[in-house]
């Protein structure tokens, strides 16, 4: 049983007009075997939260902690976080020309597992994971994400999830840009990994659509750089019906009040 604990997280980015605070005190705890949906309007800071947990150099943490089983992840390098059991499925996976998907997957698995997987097992493992995600085996020899469609990129993110077997997975808008078929395949991949592991999932999304495939235990509404409200799956249904307006206007009012 593991815990990912985000405490009073403040994060800023450098802009032309100086540093700008994006996260303004995020508190969130995810346990193994739990799926938390983080929902919010564009610009609310959802993706910043995802990238800050993974350690993207563009974001500067000014206050707070991210604890993985009590250890402060923020003191680790990007690769150390991944090896400690964190995984970020990116909204825009990066193309790496000249590096084959198979070489990349094997390098990553070797790093995360601490030893090179045995070739015979590995080939089987990759093949079966690719079949589950309906990925053509020819992709193994293509450069990482290069020329992939949006759907192909997302399938490969989930492929990495299933091979790297993290303790916690942050899925950043994994549903964006997917048609219904691709969404079904990608969701099934996530659910399969959930079923065979104790992974805790932080599912970041703008729309409720993916929640019909991946059932959340908790739903958090993210507005203006912090969690505005938390609840069960019924909160997602309310958002589906009424949108974010109730939360955004409340946040605006709150901002307007004297401290």
């Amino acid at each position: 049983m593991s815990t990912l604990e985000i405490r009073d997280l403040h994060v800023e980015v450098e802009t032309e007009s100086g540093p700008k605070e994006i996260l303004r005190g995020v508190d969130l705890t995810v346990n193994s075997n739990e799926t938390h949906a983080i929902m919010g309007p564009n610009g609310s800071g959802k993706s910043t939260l995802a990238y800050s947990i993974a350690g993207h150099p563009k974001y500067t943490v000014t206050r707070g902690e991210v604890l993985l089983d009590g250890e402060n992840v923020l003191e680790m390098e990007v690769d150390e976080r991944a090896r400690a059991g964190l995984f970020l499925a990116m909204q825009y996976p990066v193309e790496v020309p000249g590096v084959s998907m198979s070489n990349f997957l094997r390098s990553a698995a070797t790093a995360v597992r601490g030893e090179a997987p045995k070739v015979r097992h590995w080939v089987k493992e990759v093949k079966s994971a690719m079949t589950d995600l309906e990925i053509d085996p020819a992709f193994a020899e293509r450069s990482v994400n290069e020329g992939f469609s949006g759907g192909e990129k997302k399938r490969h993110e989930v492929l990495q999830l299933s091979l790297l077997k993290p303790k916690f997975a942050v899925l950043d808008e994994t549903d964006s840009g997917l048609d219904v078929d691709a969404l079904r395949v990608v969701s099934k991949g996530v659910n399969d990994y959930k079923a065979q592991s104790d992974v805790g999932v932080l599912l970041i999304t703008h729309y409720t659509r993916i929640l019909r495939y991946i059932a959340p235990d908790r739903v958090h509404v993210f507005v203006n750089g912090r969690v505005a409200e938390s609840g069960g799956p019924e909160l997602a249904e309310e958002l589906e019906a009424n949108g974010y307006e109730r939360f955004t206007s409340a946040a605006a009012e709150k901002e307007g009040q004297p401290a």
Binding site: A54, L88, V96, A111
Partner: peptide, 10 residues
């Protein structure tokens, strides 16, 4: 960042 986020050392 992408490669390191998959555990690969810098």
């Amino acid at each position: 960042f992408y490669l390191m986020a998959r555990g690969i050392p810098e």
